[in-house]
Design a protein around this nucleic acid. Sequence first.
RNA 1: GCCGGAGUGGCGAAAUUGGUAUACGCACCAGACUCAAAAUCUGGCGAGCUUCACUGCUCAUGUCGGUUCGAGUCCGACCUCCGGCACCA
Length: 851
Amino acid sequence: MDEKYFPEQIENKWQQRWNESGVFQARDEDPREKFYCLEMLPYPSGFLHMGHVRNYAIGDALAWFKRLQGFNVMHPIGWDSFGQPAEQAAIKRGVNPRDWTEDNIAHMRGQLQRLGISYDWTREIAAHRPEYYKWDQWFFLKMLERGLAYKKVSQVNWCPKEETVLSNEQSSGGICWRCGTPVQKRDLEQWFVRITEYAEQLLDGMKEIEAGWPEKVLKRQSDWVGRSEGAFIDFAVKDSNHKIRVFTTRIDTIYGATAIVLSAEHPLLPELLEDSALKNDVEAFAQKVKSRKAIRTDLAEEEEKEGLNTGVLAINPFSSETIPVWVANYVLIEYGTGAVMSVPAHDERDFDFAQKYSLPIRQVIAPVTHDQLAAEPVPTTAGDASAEMKHSFTDYGVLINSGEWGGKTSAEAIAEMSAYAREKNFGEAAVTYRIRDWGVSRQRFWGAPVPVVYCDKCNMVPVRYEDLPVVLPKTAAFTGTGESPLAGVPEFVNTTCPQCGGPARRDTDTMDTFVDSSWYFFRYLDPRNNDAPFDPKIAQQWTPVDQYIGGDSHAVMHLIYTRFWNKFMRDIGMVSFDEPVKRLLTQGMVTNRVGDTEEWKAMSKSLGNGVDPDEMIAAFGADATRLFVLFAAPVENELRWSDTGIEGAVRFLRRVYAMVWKWQGRLANDGDQTPGEFSPEARALRRKTHQTIAKITSDLEHLHLNTSVAALMELFNQLNDFNANPAKASESDVFAVREALEALVVMLTPFAPHVAEEMWEGLGHAGGLLREVPRWPVADPELARREELEIPVQVNGKLRSRVIASPEVSEEELKASALADERIRALIDGHEVMKVIVVPRRLVNIVIKSA
RNA sequence: GCCGGAGUGGCGAAAUUGGUAUACGCACCAGACUCAAAAUCUGGCGAGCUUCACUGCUCAUGUCGGUUCGAGUCCGACCUCCGGCACCA
């Protein structure tokens, strides 16, 4: 230990030692309790940004805390290394995506090591390496076997800038999630994964994890799954054998249906119009809607509702009423059945539509109050139901104008009417979901090839498991035309059919990179397995993940896919549990001022407000950078960058370092001597030490890292105030200082591990902090207990005085001493004391009658 | 529009869940050291009033109201900001 704090020297020294000793390597055979601490793996863009630093600093704090407590900690890292930017670099600059990616990984790995994050580097993985993506393909084949992966022509979301297909999640809001370009629609044959089959399980599973996941993430996921209970109802088409099936959540309003409205893309439309004079008009309209949809750029604004009467009539199965069938632009083909019954009186959209096209508006639900609902029978207060409605009435109520169902509440009617529909065979209760199957095809080079071949004789044939991986060729022509670049590589495309041995062509699509990231944290556990993605027995020891940490931008994509993947792996016997992640933390963004403005935005190259982690490490050290990032704000809050803030962090580390330096001679040479009587100051210091241990141990468990650092600072301040002279201090003072200083150093480790190790060594401990014996201090409640309390005394709720009392004092005694207090006596003199509230150990409040 | 979340000093924030509001840090101010500056150390730091001073009082947790002996915390209404979703029948 040097006299002065030189971060660079200390950090190099300990990074080298950690590396040589392999202390961060997790071992399967270890009797200690496991803890799996996982951070979202980075995309190797080339450079670490402050968001990464924050993410990994949080994870590392937890990993160190658990290690020091004696857990067997798994803390791995890898690279989400497939994806567009590598290919963009190839298109723009002619570099090979693989070289570009490997270079970036090498650089970022160096940055992570300079930050001193305690990863087990022996488990590092990268998605673009054949030994990894082989297993993406293996899983794909398993899904194909189970009918979970399938191919269909579909209208896909197409990003015209990146010239690729996007999933629904990636094109949410009508814009590309990556580049912000408005998304278009295209017809393409695509691979899909039947995530919809797991919709109900994805909702059910939330109950299991709700204690450990942020509410907002679960809410977004449940909105995404979008479960909706209702009924399918068939409307017979007049003078025809056709039926139009609609989905409704409000079957109780069916007597108010004054039209059936079909999506312009409804598959029944051509047949319905076969003999119709309006055929051409309707087709033209449908075309218009379709093309409008394809070029529509601004989905944020609602399209004006437009429709056309087809001239076809349908029959309401409840009322037998004949109503017209319309086509309109506001009915979504993707949801429900692509057809709705239009009930203008009780649906806003139908109301707008009916107003525009003068369709009848018929009220069939009357509002009721809560009290009326409880009455028997329920009275209707419809008033004049024939009066013109100014708005739709969308609440539940009581049925009117609804034949035999009149007088029933909405809830009763919904249950009874769908049962009736089922009985009469024209419908049934049904549940629909908003979630769509996961489109996994990408017309891209830099991804895992879909392991399927096409043979003229045998059609589509899966690649045999023993032939995996289907290796990506070294290079391709990166034209950026939108065709899959693999299609232009004959050595790749041309192959033999695994079934008949004849000539065959490979599928030229690659898989969505979210496939790679859906299961990667299982691969860490068994990264060199050549026979399976991982050994279930090994995975069983480590999973589920105890704590997962990452940005909330992944709330619905990655985090829903990975939950789905886990359920699939459970179904093929690879894991035994339903949910892969017990606790999730979505950390806040790191922001900085944009120029000289008061605008705080996420750091980015384009805004020019980035802060380079390497520069911070060079200027202040990795420890101070990490300490600041963890101290500046609660982990889930936005973190506003501050240069003076990081200076404060260095200042603190320097002060602690100087304190250790000052004491190290005395402490290192002075063995554990039996202390004598402690002075009141030494007792106070010990009290603070044990209170701090208790607070930080509990705060870290809940990832309250900022308050943990504050508590360390408080302990340091008290140690500073203790102000004993090392040369002259008594045995008992030395004991108290040692206890405080060692606790301080150990508890600083999660935040600033390098300097903590250095100081620990300086205090006379060889061999580093991670030993067989857990180093995390344990609070002694007896020592942490206050000897005396300062009890606030209020008069009528206002603080007027304080009295000193022992913690054991009885209520009566406390009350007596409060009433005896000089100031209090002056205040209550001449007033009647109404009552005295005594909260043991907390406060006394004297209520007096004011004059 | 719908659904969430949040409003506390100049700033980031804390408050054992209804019991001393503003811990800890940043910035700032003063003093020490220095020829001087930086660094470092020591002290001060919500607002207003009062006192030579010790002190004391009043007001303050977005606004208004309520519950309570007591409200940053609970309830009601409103304002503002930030996220998410967006014709899902």
